[in-house]
Design a protein around this nucleic acid. Structure first.
Ligand SMILES: [Mn+2]
Ligand SMILES: [Mn+2]
Ligand SMILES: [Zn+2]
Ligand SMILES: [Zn+2]
Lengths: 163, 163
DNA sequence: AGCTTTTTGCAAATGATTTGCAAAAAGCTA
DNA sequence: TAGCTTTTTGCAAATCATTTGCAAAAAGCT
């Protein structure tokens, strides 16, 4: 059975943040989508339920939620300069993005933890967090002969890109 | 003895790019600094020798050099949204940046290559390149009690930050 | 309900990077 | 080296994601 995850309200309170309708909505939308959304994407979905919500409110709250540890920020290939988010509820994982179609593949590995340990041991630093992102060509795109990233354009194909 | 690295001119020709004074200069400045510079930083140094060089020329050439594989782009903690570069002449390495003082620590490890191999084997993707960057508190900052990153501000200390 | 603090919507500002364009330079070729 | 073609440059204006100032509205007390 799915361990029921605390509600947005509960998580906000637990994190000592004010509970506003906007924050609850944004947190719920992030939970639901179980995807990586950027401010614009979240805003689009949010306004379907709260037509007057403002884009800057989305930005401000993403910052608050991130600071509070309720969401995590990601950066993807060719989308650097665009900040994506996902709820901090899943297990530690890393990302691969396809340069051709934009698809995001999530994966786990114990090796990154070892890199951190090595880094801390060898350089005396305290690692707070890692920003890991691989890029290349996904299996589907390789199958259809996409070897070289077609310029700057990401062209999603049928199973549409789920960035 | 230091294996003499091909001159900027030679590297440009080898990469099939036109040899312009601007490109030669930028490449040389990157070599010399052996550091991570962004467009603005490079521009600053470049105009000391070529006062009329334009910032957009720097941007354009960084894109060209990157495309040609002569420089590599990096992203650092809290500086996402700002693109840094270094010559593609050094061995594969990764980065750690201090959230407190901005210092960049470079390190090597064979583990990342293993992560790539795992990723390719398990998901059938073809990894083109990895963007790896750890962040936390450097040894010096830890020694002086910096445990929590002081808000958004990066405050370099004596051995000045060499971002 | 009353009071204080935080958050919101809106509009305008930022800041890094990009782009259109005409003049200048680079790379041929003869 | 001169002539011709293609690429690059400097400059100004444009983009685009993200941020900020501000007055009104909502949240969290008491
Ligand atoms: Mn993820
Ligand atoms: Mn480096
Ligand atoms: Zn793909
Ligand atoms: Zn430090």
């Amino acid at each position: 059975m799915t361990a029921s995850l605390p509600s947005p309200e509960e998580r906000l309170r637990a994190a000592g943040q004010r509970v506003t309708a906007q924050r609850v909505l944004l947190l719920r939308l992030l939970d639901e989508s179980k995807e990586h959304l950027d401010a614009e994407g979240l805003y689009e979905r949010a306004r379907r339920e709260m037509p007057d919500i403002n884009l800057s409110t989305v930005y401000r709250n993403l910052a608050v939620l991130k600071e509070a540890g309720l969401v995590e920020q990601r950066y993807f290939a060719r989308e650097h300069g665009r900040e994506y988010f996902e709820p901090s509820t899943s297990a530690e994982h890393y990302h691969f993005t396809c340069l051709s179609c934009g698809r995001v593949v999530e994966f786990e590995t114990p090796l990154i933890a070892r890199v951190r340990a090595e880094l801390q041991a060898r350089h005396g630093v305290r690692v707070r967090h890692a920003c890991i992102c691989f890029e290349g060509i996904c299996a589907d795109c390789a199958a259809r002969g996409q070897t070289v990233p077609p310029s700057k354009e990401i062209i999603p194909h049928d199973p549409p890109s789920h960035v």
